[in-house]
């Protein structure tokens, strides 16, 4: 049986393109969002940015915006909790995003519960993507970390701008991988991660104490991903301060990759939120530079600022090569 399995793997390997962070001869690609308040800032040129790699100011070779095709990986949580109306809203949102793709854009569709399923491999054919959306069903637990890993790993081999849009309405309950490993993988891969979530609604809790009855509004999301005692591979828990231990997986993943976490608040608003994400992503700048004066291997922290302009810049924290 093992021999059969390995033979099958070898066959698949031959069909797949190589995967690396694009930081070799063609230069490093950094996807950058510039906002003024909530609005994207357009019309910027390379001269408006200051980009540092490992603290060294770099020359930006090229800057582009909407003219680069989009490669979108949709990774959708279809665990039991999205059963019913929410699944319908989620499918509508995915379909609306597919409608928004241009002729040169490509997308793939992945759903996850306990299992992860690649429903539609990379394609620019909308009908194939729609068919993938139609087959999604809700059941089971939530392998959020494993799915995020898969979405990052199976990025498109075409030279488009890589966006992973993850939707999840809850926290991980079934992954093999710990969140920490996935964050490390994200540093090695190019895609920008936008996460759309349905944050838990606050609940009112009454407690009795020495000073009598007290009522407060409380939200109870799961604790930070560093306190994961569920996954298969568990390192010792670090003795880190509260803000680090409470840091949530999707927030960390988005920050590391230069993306964002957006709370749709209700499933009815998923379509609107998904479309906002795509539109915002299209308003980002793609900066390409050839690293100079920095080490060729290891972790490269990146810092991107605006020169003489107002605006909030979001970009990945760095890259590994």
């Amino acid at each position: 049986m093992r021999a059969t399995c390995l033979t099958a793997l070898a066959a698949i390997v031959c069909l797949l393109p190589p995967q690396t962070f694009r930081s070799s001869a063609e230069g490093v690609r950094v996807d950058v969002l510039v906002l003024d308040g909530k609005n994207p800032v357009g019309g910027l040129t390379a001269a408006d940015f200051e980009l540092r790699d490992g603290g060294i100011v770099q020359t930006i070779d090229s800057i582009s915006m909407e003219d680069v095709p989009l490669s979108l990986m949709l990774a959708l949580d279809t665990s039991r909790s999205v059963e019913g109306a929410a699944l319908g809203h989620l499918k509508d949102a995915a379909t609306a995003v597919i409608r928004l793709l241009g002729p040169a854009d490509r997308a793939a569709l992945m759903t996850f519960s306990g299992a992860i399923t690649l429903r539609t491999p990379w394609t620019s054919d909308r009908a194939t993507l729609d068919a993938g959306v139609a087959t999604a069903e809700a059941s089971g637990s939530t392998s959020l970390y494993d799915a995020a890993y898969a979405a990052l790993t199976l990025r498109d081999h075409q030279p488009g701008r890589q966006l992973v849009l993850i939707f999840s309405d809850g926290d991980d309950t079934a992954s093999w991988l710990p969140g920490r490993n996935v964050i490390e993988i994200a540093k090695r891969n190019e895609p920008v991660v936008y996460a759309v979530e349905l944050a838990p609604q606050p609940i009112v809790v009454s407690t009795s104490g020495p000073f009598g009855q007290r009522t407060e509004t409380v939200t109870r999301p799961a604790p930070g991903y560093r306190l994961d005692f569920h996954s298969g591979i568990q390192d010792r828990v670090e003795n880190a301060p509260n803000p680090i231990l409470l840091r949530r997986f999707l927030n960390e993943l988005a920050d590391e990759t230069g993306g964002k976490v957006v709370n749709a608040e209700s499933s009815e608003r998923l379509k609107e939120t998904f479309l906002q994400v795509i539109n915002e992503f299209r308003s980002r700048y793609l900066l390409i530079y050839t690293p100079r004066g920095v080490d060729s291997r290891g972790w490269h922290p990146i810092e991107v600022k605006l020169k003489n302009r107002r605006g909030q810049v979001t970009a990945r924290r760095g890259y590994l090569r």
């Binding site: 399995c5 793997l9 390997v13 797949l16 790993t153 991988l177 090695r188 591979i233």
Partner: peptide, 29 residues
């Protein structure tokens, strides 16, 4: 399912990216 994900991730960490993707695609497809 889980062993494919685990194997894929380790392969990626040791630099075998192509095989990592191929292994991952087995359960996903």
């Amino acid at each position: 399912h889980a062993a494919y994900v685990g194997l894929s991730q380790v392969l990626q960490r040791v630099g075998q990216s192509d095989e990592s993707r191929a292994v991952l695609l087995v359960p996903l497809t």
